[in-house]
Design a protein around this nucleic acid. Structure first.
Lengths: 151, 151
DNA sequence: CTATGTGCAAAGGCTTTGCAAACGG
DNA sequence: CCGTTTGCAAAGCCTTTGCACATAG
């Protein structure tokens, strides 16, 4: 499922349905809204945040959010992350295959691409007999605007 | 607190006491054993694993393990990590800066160190005005034994 | 009609808290 | 002695599960 960030949600959703129906997926308004919320967020979101945003449009329970997130995760469409203070999982759609710089304060993800970093990664994975799957390199730090706030 | 891996535990523990007493630390056999366990593990350990290993030497409760880990974390002596399946925090002394290769199937974490990868990371963080905090590079893939199982 | 999704309530699992007793300095 | 640490039990939080009902195909 090649997803280009520039396409709009409807195009994305159609692709999703095509992929998901092979895995016994039945359409529901809850799942559509969850995908819509994820699609329009640049940051990683917790299940609770996703539920809150979805509730602007529909009634939805937390177990349903988790159910859908786990379904998406199994399809390989979700990137999961646990940031300090390490209490909650956060989720983000894998819309593209860029590497990311993630701010552990605000969750902002900044995509970047560095060829030499990629080469280094390949080399290391190979050295340890690891197969690369769905390769995404994520570097963590504190972004400039959060650095300013701290002072 | 510069900790060189080659020094033995007693030297390390003496340094720790020196640092910790400034933070109201009272010595206890439980804390000493926890530090001993952490000192002798290359991998990140969960609180439960730490408790199990410590219980070979003393009686110790889980809240005490957490209490000590949080104390060490506040002192900046601990590196914390949450790996797939994202259920438990794992802890490791910051004796050195281990990067990790994580198998997304079985969760095995294999520490590695690659100087050039580190340099690349620094460069990229700087380029985007990110401050590096708790620096650990984590690469994900499928380890050799899980590759074999899949076939 | 059958398989899947939903919501509720309850259970699970990891981590923290409150408190009395034990201990260190 | 006073402040800190310990263990126990209980509480908190996030996430999952069981089940009856609703809905999609």
């Amino acid at each position: 499922m090649a997803m280009d960030k520039k396409e709009n949600f409807n195009q994305f959703y159609e692709k999703f349905l095509n992929l998901a129906k092979n895995y016994g997926h039945y359409d529901s308004s809850q799942r559509e809204v969850i995908l819509r919320v994820l699609y329009h967020s640049n940051a990683h979101l917790s299940a609770d945040e996703i539920a809150c945003r979805a509730r602007k449009y529909i009634r939805i329970s937390l177990p349903t959010v988790y159910n859908t997130l786990n379904f998406l995760e199994n399809l390989g469409l979700i990137h999961t992350l646990v940031l300090p203070p390490f209490k909650t999982k956060t989720y983000k759609l894998k819309l593209d295959y860029h590497d990311q710089l993630v701010c552990i304060k605000c969750g902002t993800a900044m995509p970047f691409c560095d060829k030499k970093l990629r080469e280094k990664e390949s080399e290391i994975l190979q050295n340890y007999n690891f197969t690369a799957i769905n390769r995404t390199i994520i570097l963590y730090g504190v972004c400039f605007s959060c650095q300013k706030k701290q002072r």
